[in-house]
Design a protein around this nucleic acid. Sequence first.
DNA 1: CAGTGGTCTAGACCACCGC
DNA 2: CGGTGGTCTAGACCACTGG
Lengths: 253, 253
Amino acid sequence: MNISTNFLTPTVSDQPIPGQSRYGWLAATFRAAIAQGDWAAGTALPSEAVLSKKHGVALGTLRQALALLVAEGLLERQHGRGTFVKSGLGGASMLRFFRFRQSDERMGTPQSSILTRTVQLASAEEADALHLPTGANVLKLQRLRSVQGQPCLLEHITLPLPAFAALANSDTAAWDDLLYPMFQRVCGITIQRAVDNVSFGLLTAEQAQLLKLETGHPCAQVQRRAFDLQGQCLELRTTLGDAFAFEYTAEVR
Amino acid sequence: MNISTNFLTPTVSDQPIPGQSRYGWLAATFRAAIAQGDWAAGTALPSEAVLSKKHGVALGTLRQALALLVAEGLLERQHGRGTFVKSGLGGASMLRFFRFRQSDERMGTPQSSILTRTVQLASAEEADALHLPTGANVLKLQRLRSVQGQPCLLEHITLPLPAFAALANSDTAAWDDLLYPMFQRVCGITIQRAVDNVSFGLLTAEQAQLLKLETGHPCAQVQRRAFDLQGQCLELRTTLGDAFAFEYTAEVR
DNA sequence: CAGTGGTCTAGACCACCGC
DNA sequence: CGGTGGTCTAGACCACTGG
């Protein structure tokens, strides 16, 4: 990572500044510290004064660096309390696309059950997206999520296999309703960010049966790629739900 | 608006600071200047040095104020050139929800034709959303947008009537393909921001006929509320398009 | 080259939190 | 109350743009 360690520091700073600004370099340093776990999720960073002194930088510069990481969603600042490392994604983020009856506040998280779990060879697209070598295995999950006993979302999940090996043999019935916190606990993997692509389709007979809908019923399809702290894609997920329960709001400027 | 004009300014500032920070108040001042047209869209603001001196504020403080407006999408800064007032929304923003063949780059804007134009009483919901008095009139438009001669989007647009009177009698055949720039030119109304709500439904017979699809064909429905610089809602729009052409990407952190 | 925004400093004081 | 982040200042120098 360190391209030029800059042996001949002319005047003041001994810090290797690649091509970026000082605060940009500082932000990168902190980003790495978070990614490597030196700053654990949920914990507080040292105060601004300490950090600025430690890195030989003015307060304002240090604050610019932190502001970058806040904008990226890695940090959270609280006036009078401190600066904290954000935990990864919660996992209930799929619900933002759907409005299921009574799902709004009371039953925050839908129940989850794993229908199938298999290990198989990664397809070309999967290997490409997950940056796996050819011939690598992936863990495939089929998962049904229900609200108040009503099945509402059907998911197909692909996970790269050396990384998620701990999930290949554990009892799926004992799994949490939320996967991402479990990824963190069991596999030490933090999902920090995801990209969802929404499109429209019709349910196949098998899909419809699981969702208790008619074959050919319209469905919304959300294809997700989820990334860890290093920006590595570590999950591919396809979620299907009743198109008539779909609702999403976006702002344009 | 000015709650306390603060007659007894104790030490330094003569500026009416409501409860906000200095830069927050500055930003509000600039926001108002833009909204009232003192800063015309597309023009450059005075330099940082001039503005900071004029408002008796340090450079850093002035920059914080500008940063707020940049984040709001009202301003745009260009290193070495200046700070500019952004023009309103372009108008082609509906296409971000759909992928029509060959619409990607070559034919940037779909052609537009106004099918019907009527003046009628605002419904209760419309009057509420547009902040109209009861009994006020609205302009209703039905509009078909086509790519390469193929009809693809059907729109139903509601506009409050004193404001858009200039559109009530002009020749619709001569209208632009993009409405928002025309709103600005003809009515002096700048659309700065919009909120889109997406859901799925089925086409009625009339809708299907216009879009050259089957009755009952699945459609994506985008309900938009568009706002001017003051945050006033000045347009209600419902857009229908083939659900199988729908595609949208969102990021979650 | 002059003028613009971008970075950086070394201070000061204020507002909030929790003990 | 001490410690935290938030605001603000009055400078300095750098990097980019355009004539």
